[in-house]
Design a protein around this nucleic acid. Structure first.
Lengths: 226, 226
DNA sequence: TTATAAAAATGATATTTATCATGTTATAAT
DNA sequence: ATTATAACATGATAAATATCATTTTTATAA
């Protein structure tokens, strides 16, 4: 009957622990809206007062550095929750969330989430595990960033994008990032990123179809990444 | 009466939310032991089945990389809990924990912690916030690692060590890391780390007292770090 | 105390990566 | 369609950092 019940976020996120009554409460308190590519869901430093469910699209969590570069911390996609950390820590957002592709999101007020957290052990456990998962990912990602060369990081990131977001019918990567954004993920200068993509192209590891990227030799990319 | 009640970990960590009865339960289930400098509390991949309270000493959380370097993710000190993440995620440890200085730790079995988690909302909230804090730190640290030069990272790290662990009577840093460990924190080659310390020394930013490090010009170090 | 190993230090050099300059191609607005 | 703008691309060069070699110093064990 109500829409939240069938929502992908409800199926994939911590919200799967909610019972029928709780889902009804959820559906009544949420607000849905659309975010165009390039627009922000929230900005670093903003008080969000709730979490965002990503129903559709792809977003990036990033932080602007002193030198003006936008470091991308994580890409998020449909099914995921956003803003859990700052809600729980009672702090303004540490990162900005912006749409990389057109998005549809729902906002759930903090009071609602905290109510579930305090009354549904499975939900609080799920939420906890999701933050723990983020922490583990962040730590491992950090190690990779420091210990691998830019070339290795690029190979690794391309494989991850393929794996996490899939491919279009023409075999190109579904998430379409600008070279600047890709550079922001691997933590390098845009020119360096472009140059390496060219190299990969010449080596037959990938194929550049306009701005799109097609992975041609996964095995070689994997070897390069490790 | 019981020792856990007055313990520094009980005062500083999530455990502060426990009531008297719970602390008694805690005291009865814990086991205390000592870890000598260099020894491991647990290793990457190990199933820990509980958390560790750090009563005394300093430890490092690190991960061995393919090229044989030990990347240090975080230093931990008395008052902190260790192994929360893998316990909650139900996974083997993602990182190794080793003593940088002689340590005294208590082990608390998982069943105990989970019981508190499910029956004490304040405790679960505290635990949650502590993981969230770790996540935020990890993300910010990651950004710093990628966007700052090795020189900036070294300056930043020295300031952080001074701030978080304090100084000896002779004004040298209290945590005594080898140059290799320091390099492992800032993510660089040991030689590069040593070379920069020499430079800092010549510039009057720090003074090298044997293997110990004394910060001489905090203001200049801060300027260098940003 | 002496032998031995580990840690720290420094030089020479190679490699990686960033920066600046400039050109090209694609995209969007008029 | 035409112009303006942003994204992509590539060359030349500089700067940062790693690697390898060697020496000095410090710690540790026989």
């Amino acid at each position: 009957m109500n829409k939240c019940d069938q929502c992908i976020v409800r199926q994939l996120s911590s919200l799967k622990a909610l019972n029928k009554d709780e889902v009804v409460k959820l559906a009544n308190s949420k607000t849905t809206y659309k975010i165009k590519k390039g627009e922000a869901i929230f900005e670093e430093g903003e008080v969000t007062n709730g979490v965002f469910c990503i129903k559709d699209g792809v977003g990036k969590l990033s932080k602007l550095s002193a030198n003006g570069k936008d470091q991308i911390v994580k890409l998020v996609q449909s099914g995921e929750l956003l803003g859990q950390r700052s809600m729980i820590s009672n702090e303004p957002a540490n990162l900005s969330a912006k749409a990389v592709a057109d998005m549809e999101v729902c906002f759930i007020p903090k009071t609602e989430i905290l109510h579930f957290f305090n009354n549904n052990n499975q939900f609080s456990m799920n939420l906890m595990q999701s933050v723990c998962e983020d922490l583990k990912e962040s730590e491992n990602n950090k190690i990779a960033l420091v210990q691998k060369t830019v070339k290795q990081r690029l190979a690794e990131t391309l494989l991850h994008l393929d794996d996490a977001f899939g491919e279009n019918a023409d075999k190109t990567l579904k998430v379409q990032l600008t070279r600047e954004e890709l550079a922001g993920i691997i933590g390098t200068a845009t020119e360096s990123c472009i140059r390496l993509l060219s190299d990969f192209n010449k080596l037959g590891l990938i194929e550049l179809v306009g701005k799109k990227i097609m992975l041609k030799d996964i095995r070689a990319l994997k070897k390069m990444a490790e």
